[in-house]
């Protein structure tokens, strides 16, 4: 042992030296180094995750946009269909209204016409009666008195209005 040079104080000194070196290096070299390495790898991982996320987001957005487009197209189609339906109905209603209006106008016109004719016929009848009375009075001036005369006329008129009906 002596020949080899084993010497307890020197051995202890070297143990202490190594321990000091270990502690100092741990504090000033390994800790910052490992932290830096970890930070670096964390950052790399983070950016890769981010890229992945962005990619996924893009894919999702694409699907979404597609879905929205589809929905919009369907909606548009539905709206067009509805609008054409509404148009059809409006057209139908307008037609219906026009027809009714025309009918009403026609009815009214007819009524007016009837009334007018009635009036004309009435006047005609009166005139005719007067003429008839006049004529009859002229023909049978003395044989008939006024009373009989009027009854006769009434009869004639009755007949004529019956005939008319």
């Amino acid at each position: 042992m002596e020949k080899l040079g084993i010497n307890i104080p020197v051995l202890l000194a070297q143990l202490v030296n190594f321990t000091i070196l270990l502690i100092l290096l741990y504090l000033f070299a390994y800790k910052p180094l490992l932290r830096t390495l970890d930070n670096r790898s964390a950052r790399i991982k983070e950016s890769m995750d981010m890229a992945q996320k962005i990619k996924e987001q893009a894919a999702r957005t694409e699907v979404e946009v597609k879905a929205q487009l589809d929905a919009a197209r369907q909606e548009g189609q539905a709206m067009i269909a509805q609008a054409s339906q509404v148009g059809e109905r409006v057209k139908e209603e307008a037609k219906q209204g026009a027809r009714q209006e025309a009918q009403a106008v026609m009815v009214r016109a007819k009524a007016e016409m009837d009334r007018e004719r009635e009036k004309v016929v009435d006047e005609l009848r009166k005139e005719f009666a007067d003429i008839a009375i006049l004529a009859a009075g002229k023909v049978i001036k003395e044989s008939l008195d006024k009373k009989v005369h009027e009854r006769l006329i009434q009869e004639v008129l009755e007949q004529s209005s019956l005939k008319k009906k």
Binding site: N7, P9, V10, Q14, N17, L21, L24, L25, F28
Partner: peptide, 22 residues
């Protein structure tokens, strides 16, 4: 406590390592 020339060399290399690390 003996300080041998090997201990001095050890201190020197410790110094070098630590300075470089710092």
């Amino acid at each position: 406590l003996p300080v041998t020339n090997t201990i001095l060399a050890t201190w020197l290399s410790m110094l070098v390592i630590i300075v470089v690390a710092l």
